[in-house]
Simulated assay, not measured.
Amino acid sequence: MKQHILIIGAGFGGVWSALGAARLLDKNDRHDVQISVLAPHPELRIRPRFYEAQVHTMQAPLSPLFAAVGVNFIEGTADSIDENARQVTYRDLTGIPTTVQYDRLVLAAGSRLNRPPMEGIEHVFDVDQIEDATRLEAHIHTLKHLPDSPARNTVVVAGGGFTGIETATEMPARLREALGDNADIRVVVVDRSPQIAASMGDGIRPSIIEASKELGLEWVLNNSVASVDTRGVTLADGQRIESSTVIWTIGFRANPMTEQVSGTRDPQGRLHVDGTLKVKGQADIFAAGDVAYAATDDLGNVAAMSCQHAIALGRYAGNNVAADLIGVAPMTYSQPKYVTCLDLGAWGAVYTEGWDRQVKLVGQEAKDLKHQINSVWIYPPAAERAAALAAADPLIPVA
């Protein structure tokens, strides 16, 4: 009977874990190990693009790729992990609970936007999952059927972090497309920080400020959304903003599946892993992507919740879970290079390198790079076995 590597999740971490494991098994001519990916859909959803329009197109089918490299796909939703019995319980398409055994497990279940228990939270939109972003897109298209009013013409974005900025800077063009060029549109970013893009550093901030001015974005700083209703938001200081479209972008947490694994977690719920990406204190469980709290270098930097890190984490986790199972030497995860490419809508983009975000490209040059990243680089490889396995080499730089 074949030994079994089970991977929970078909996001960037999960897909590249599967390819990384398949690559090492192929390299060692091992045919006695089965790799399975357990996820609700046989597709990689391109989550970094969910702030864009046409979101329903932002997925890549995985069945041909998995068939080419010999990875089994299990369509279902994981419910529980029994680390002692080494089994996972999941619900299949009919909702029937089913269990699957594993010899080694890679948890790559991703992260979710954390909606707080705030009054009216059910009225907000978000761009976290493809279904959520599709609902927002459909809503924007229906705005033209509403009477012209400040509420109809106003989008409030709660949160001025990476997702909030990319979403907000995209909104003017999307509103004009829906409402016409003559509509008196308004996009407001509400952020509790004392200055624009406070967490991103002084180097990148001027580009964000310039883009905000050119696009007509308003920033309400030192403030937060206190409640939401069908007509708009009330802020913590009592200020009222009429809006039919409130988008929540604050607070991402690791998938709650991490709570079923014994181990240390960071404030975002990510499991602490060692240099091979094995969960600390576990013998058979590895973590990759947004569920892993992993050191990227020897300088104290930790992987961010981003596809940039999830791809590399997946390559290493897949390699190492297979290495652990067949008894070959693992590789120590290392990803010292860190870049950001922040989309700023019609203004362009800004590209930085290093954890201190040194600006290298701005405007259209950065926008061209962002388009290349979003439309080519982060997509999975073609369904050709040799090329797909070669692409899973952990030593290939992601950025």
Results as ranks from 00 to 15, higher is better:
residue 3 Q to W: 07
residue 5 I to H: 02
residue 9 G to P: 00
residue 9 G to A: 11
residue 15 V to W: 02
residue 18 A to G: 13
residue 18 A to N: 07
residue 19 L to P: 09
residue 21 A to D: 04
residue 26 D to L: 04
residue 29 D to N: 15
residue 30 R to T: 13
residue 32 D to A: 07
residue 39 A to W: 06
residue 41 H to P: 00
residue 43 E to F: 03
residue 44 L to F: 15
residue 50 F to K: 01
residue 57 T to G: 14
residue 57 T to Y: 12
residue 65 L to Y: 13
residue 67 A to S: 14
residue 68 A to D: 05
residue 69 V to S: 03
residue 72 N to P: 01
residue 73 F to I: 05
residue 76 G to P: 00
residue 83 E to A: 15
residue 85 A to H: 13
residue 91 R to I: 03
residue 91 R to M: 04
residue 94 T to D: 12
residue 99 T to G: 03
residue 105 L to T: 04
residue 106 V to R: 04
residue 115 R to A: 08
residue 119 E to H: 12
residue 123 H to M: 07
residue 125 F to W: 10
residue 132 D to I: 00
residue 138 A to M: 05
residue 143 L to G: 04
residue 144 K to F: 11
residue 145 H to Q: 11
residue 152 R to Q: 08
residue 152 R to N: 10
residue 157 V to P: 09
residue 157 V to R: 03
residue 165 I to A: 06
residue 166 E to I: 04
residue 166 E to Y: 03
residue 167 T to G: 04
residue 168 A to W: 12
residue 169 T to P: 00
residue 170 E to P: 01
residue 171 M to T: 05
residue 176 R to E: 08
residue 177 E to V: 05
residue 184 D to E: 13
residue 184 D to I: 01
residue 186 R to T: 08
residue 191 D to L: 06
residue 198 A to Q: 09
residue 199 S to G: 07
residue 203 G to M: 10
residue 210 E to S: 14
residue 210 E to Y: 00
residue 212 S to W: 14
residue 212 S to P: 00
residue 222 N to V: 05
residue 222 N to F: 07
residue 226 A to H: 13
residue 235 L to M: 10
residue 261 V to A: 08
residue 270 R to Y: 03
residue 291 V to I: 12
residue 311 I to L: 10
residue 319 N to C: 08
residue 319 N to Y: 15
residue 324 D to R: 10
residue 325 L to F: 15
residue 326 I to P: 00
residue 327 G to K: 05
residue 328 V to C: 10
residue 331 M to Q: 14
residue 333 Y to C: 04
residue 333 Y to H: 10
residue 335 Q to Y: 08
residue 337 K to I: 14
residue 340 T to C: 11
residue 345 G to F: 13
residue 346 A to Y: 09
residue 351 Y to G: 01
residue 354 G to R: 03
residue 355 W to R: 06
residue 355 W to K: 03
residue 365 E to G: 12
residue 369 L to S: 02
residue 375 S to N: 15
residue 376 V to A: 12
residue 377 W to E: 06
residue 387 A to G: 02
residue 390 A to N: 10
residue 395 L to I: 02
